[in-house]
């Protein structure tokens, strides 16, 4: 199946240096993707490349096998830009004028449900309402891929919940693929099923969340046995006291050594562990293969 979003050897250099390097990933269709990373990790750059607002310095990015500008991608930028002087109705007309696949009923019904008055100027709406209008503009285009850059930032907890719930019900109805970025992992835990972690402009993790959780385990055991584990399995994080070691390892199989107690890993804990250790990565085979093919001349 053609991936909803596919990047190959993607790199972006600004005047100040590389914002994104050597990134290859493939996200299957129908997923809700959480793009996580600290501030300055390159999340916005990746999303801008994914919607065609930026041209890459290296590599390619495609949606559904097509160049992103022709692929029916909708985007909501971080500051949720709207024309402040327009009324909500005029913003809808903007969407209708610029998008042949525009679903006006969907847009109107959605705003009516949210009780956002069509005649009000956008600049006079609350922050939550503006986000909802921006989101309505994005979903009423009926995109196959919806890309949202920090959609929940600047919202109070109540508005956060509302926006997230409204978004998820729309997604469930349409089956569209969604990518959204956040630097707050907790926001995404219950809504997403695919995780992408970016750190310092490089891809660290890309995979199905259930598989990632199943593929990592927290081990607690005697400190003198820790090195033996580290020799056999990739250790993402470790904590040692005088007697006890706690390790986060990537392994699908349980460790047979009875001295080690296993715990299920928590998603947030796992993400933080990866972010603290930019050297480690958990990437699915296709992404690694693509990387090797294009950018690693020594590999073959």
């Amino acid at each position: 199946m053609t991936p909803a979003l596919e990047a190959t050897g993607l790199g972006k250099r600004y005047r100040g240096g590389w914002a994104l390097r050597d990134l290859s990933l493939a996200v299957p269709e129908g997923r809700v993707v959480a793009l996580v990373g600290p501030n300055g990790a390159g999340k916005s750059t990746l999303l801008h490349l994914a919607v065609g607002l930026l041209d890459p310095t290296h590599g390619t990015v495609r949606a559904f096998g097509e160049p992103v500008r022709q692929a029916g991608v909708a985007f909501m930028a971080q500051d949720k830009p709207l024309y402040d002087g327009f009324t909500v109705a005029e913003m809808l007309r903007f969407g209708r004028t610029l998008n042949p696949g525009w679903d006006d009923d969907l847009a109107r019904n959605r705003l009516a449900e949210l009780e956002i008055p069509l005649r009000r100027k956008v600049g006079r709406l609350s922050g939550g309402q503006q986000t909802q209008v921006a989101l309505t503009l994005a979903v009423a285009k009926r995109p196959r891929l919806l890309v949202l850059d920090e959609p929940l930032a600047d919202l109070d907890p109540l508005a956060r919940q509302d926006v997230l719930r409204a978004l998820m019900s729309t997604v469930a109805e349409s089956g569209m693929t969604v990518v959204f970025s956040s630097h707050v992992v907790a926001d995404l835990k219950d809504t997403c099923d695919w995780l992408v972690v970016l750190n310092r402009g490089r891809l660290q993790v890309s995979g199905d969340i259930d598989e990632l959780v199943a593929g990592h385990r927290v081990l607690r055991g005697p400190v003198e046995a820790a090195d033996a584990i580290a020799d056999r399995l990739p250790v993402i994080a470790h904590e040692r006291t005088d007697r006890q070691a706690t390790l986060l390892v990537r392994s699908a199989q349980p460790v047979p050594d009875p001295r080690w107690h296993e715990h299920r890993v928590d998603l947030e804990q796992m993400v933080l562990a990866y972010l603290r250790d930019p050297g480690s990565s958990a990437l699915p085979r296709p992404a690694l293969a693509a990387l090797g093919k294009d950018d690693r001349p020594w590999s073959g």
Binding site: V51, L98, N99, P100
Partner: peptide, 18 residues
């Protein structure tokens, strides 16, 4: 300045036409 280019240029109508 307002960031609305990110809105206007990610619609189905191309930037060239806009």
């Amino acid at each position: 300045e307002q960031g609305t280019n990110k809105l206007a240029w990610t619609q189905a109508a191309s930037l060239r036409r806009w």
